[in-house]
Write a protein that binds this DNA or RNA. Structure first.
Length: 112
DNA sequence: GGTTTGACCCGTT
DNA sequence: CAACGGGCCAAAC
């Protein structure tokens, strides 16, 4: 299972199973892996994540709902457009509506 | 095996 | 409300 795989592998697996129209935070991924403090390491795994894996890294955002740096996706607007196309709701601030689009690993389908 | 780094998070000023 | 600093973890050099 995932526990037998290296940290990066676990991160990739978790990111790969993010449903469309939903987003997740680095801290949430780290916490799901058992290390709530390893949020930075998760980001590191993303940075080293080969695009060949087809990881929806655009669905991974920080705690504030802010997307990754621009050079990563060749433009922040591009990533935002991709997410919107998947059903992710954006606020007027340019941030993601975490209240609705934050993916819950607990299976909780009730945001409110 | 120690040092550096990083797409982070939280508390304090 | 915005800015700054510290901390924590895992991989690469």
């Amino acid at each position: 299972m995932l526990e037998t795989k290296p940290f990066f592998q676990r991160v990739y697996a978790l990111v790969a199973m993010i449903p469309p129209g939903k987003v997740i935070t680095y801290g949430a991924i780290a916490a799901a892996l058992g290390s709530p403090k390893s949020a930075r390491t998760v980001g590191w795994a993303m940075r080293a994540a080969p695009k060949e894996l087809g990881l929806p890294c655009h669905r991974v955002v920080n705690r504030s709902g802010i997307l990754a740096p621009e050079p990563v996706f060749s433009g922040k607007y591009l990533q935002r457009m991709m997410l919107e196309a998947e059903g992710v709701v954006f606020l007027a601030d340019g941030r993601i509506d975490m209240r609705k689009c934050l993916w819950r690993l607990d299976g909780t389908t009730e945001p409110n």
